[in-house]
């Protein structure tokens, strides 16, 4: 790595710390949220520098995109202007506990990270890649070597959606009236592109950075953009219709794949020889669909209407 790289990384690290400070200390909540979104974008850049493009994609789509949109719409629902300008910290608690504790933690982590040999398991993963059914190490880890983690992670997403539904109904109207007439048109124009990119990422996952999580995140972010551009949220919480099925599809398919191994007399989640490749692709499609819809459902901030918005919407 050349000098330019070192300088760039140093600036990036400094900017990240400064934005984190802004996001937590800014007295104006809007300022804090914008700092947080920029933090997510720079974090994605940091992942690129660490040669982890998969994580960079997910960070940009979820960390900056979906989370940022959620925070902005939460901000919008704080009715008074005074509510947006709050002192987020008490100087006593901050200087008496949190800042010293944070500094101690940072110091200990820096000292420990300095001494890390960081061997990782990269060589072991590459050595077993041939038997995993895919050519991309990240996909092999996520859907074969450590598929159990992925099952639980998709489960956490579904669980989060159910938890949000349990808190109450989605607010209506979901988005404020649009000031710009160009936005709905732009949203409609862009959505097919989102679908195309998501499908491409999904297909790429077997041999290059991509796969279910980035694809689902991109598709979900596209759907959220459509919503912001004035589209009606088409998802329903009714027991009839496909929505609850699609939300659960990823977890259900992964569970089925796990149990199938046991039923066939092998270990839990052991794919039959020769079928790993197609099975993983099938699981990725199911998981990607569920992830996209789950992210969209999380954005609705509550249980959607049971039978449609016509008549009750804006």
């Amino acid at each position: 790595m050349g000098t330019a790289g070192v300088i760039f990384d140093g600036l990036l690290a400094l900017a990240l710390v400064w934005l984190a400070w802004q996001a937590t200390r800014a007295a104006d909540l809007f300022h804090a949220v914008v700092s947080f979104i920029v933090f997510g974008l720079l974090m994605a850049l940091a992942w690129v520098r660490l040669e982890a493009p998969d994580i960079a994609l997910a960070e940009a789509a979820i960390g900056a995109g979906a989370t940022g949109a959620l925070l902005l719409s939460a901000l919008d629902r704080l009715v008074t202007r005074e509510g947006r300008r709050t002192v987020l910290y008490e100087p006593g608690a901050a200087w008496g506990f949190w800042i010293p504790a944070g500094a101690a933690l940072l110091g200990a982590l820096t000292l420990a990270a300095w001494k890390l040999p960081a061997p990782g398991l990269g060589d072991e993963v590459l050595a077993s890649l041939g038997a995993s059914g895919v050519d991309h190490p990240v996909t092999a880890v996520l859907l074969n070597f450590r598929a159990l983690d992925t099952l639980l992670e998709i489960g956490v997403l579904l669980l989060a959606a159910v938890t949000i539904w349990s808190l109450g109904r989605a607010p209506s109207p979901l988005v404020p009236v649009m000031p710009s007439p160009a936005l709905p048109a732009l949203g409609r124009l862009l959505f097919p592109v989102f679908v195309l990119v998501a499908a491409y990422l999904l297909w790429r996952g077997s041999h290059a950075p991509g796969g279910a999580f980035p694809a689902g995140a991109v598709l979900g972010a596209g759907a959220i953009l459509m919503l912001l551009a004035g589209a009606r949220p088409w998802i329903r919480s009714s027991e009839h219709g496909p929505w609850r099925w699609i939300l659960s599809l990823g977890l259900a398919m992964l569970l089925a794949a796990g149990i199938a191994g046991t039923v066939m007399g092998q270990a839990f989640f052991q794919y039959p020889p020769g079928t790993a490749g197609p099975l993983i692709l099938l699981l990725e499609v199911a998981a990607g669909l569920s992830i996209a819809l789950l992210l969209f459902a999380l954005y609705l901030r509550g249980e959607p209407c049971e039978h449609g918005y016509r008549g009750s919407g804006p």
């Binding site: 072991e124 070597f145 159990l148 270990a267 052991q270």
Partner: peptide
Amino acid sequence: RQDIGGWTAPLGIGW
């Protein structure tokens, strides 16, 4: 201890 997915540690997960 039982391995998940037929992969032993450190690569795989176990119960």
